[in-house]
Amino acid sequence: MIETGRVCVKTVGREAGKFCVILDVLKDGFVLVTGPKAATTVKRRKCSIHHVEPTPVTVKIKKNASDDDVLAAYKQAGVFKKLGIKEPTAKEIEKARDAERKRLAKAKTEKAKPEAKKKEPEAEPKKAEEKPEAEKAAPAKKEPAKKKQEAKTVKKPAAKKAVKKTTKKAEPKKK
């Protein structure tokens, strides 16, 4: 039942009860999965087979297909009607794309930093080995729980967010 193109329901976590598609079957009982986020709010992520429940619906997609390809395949196969999901508007799709772009940019900056740190501390070889592996698995998730030195860099985007919030609040008042 578990193969690329199989539509599933997530049973665990905040995405529980939501639909997703299997993009690739990985090692050790893991699976690459996406909603896509614009359609069902399920992120593109690795996930255990035990956290996924298959449905009889399938879609024709390639291995590791992009979210746009998946959305197109959904349209062709009429999956939105079958699952009872709303088709995402162009705005929603673009929003998801923007978020993905930001996530990738953040992951890049983080990957560059731990490599520089590796050379400095030789006393902690075990920790240095563990951290990059964890980042590969979930680069977006582990951002907040970073080391103290990186906290300085993390503060900057937080400040930007605060500015954005204030602007958002100010806009509706003008209207």
């Binding site: 329901v9 049973t11 665990v12 529980a16 009860g17 429940e53 449905t55 009889p56």
Partner: peptide
């Protein structure tokens, strides 16, 4: 909750 979601999914199809 996991069980309930699973059963609901099975009943649906």
């Amino acid at each position: 909750a996991r069980q309930k979601i699973r059963i609901k999914n099975m009943e649906r199809w």
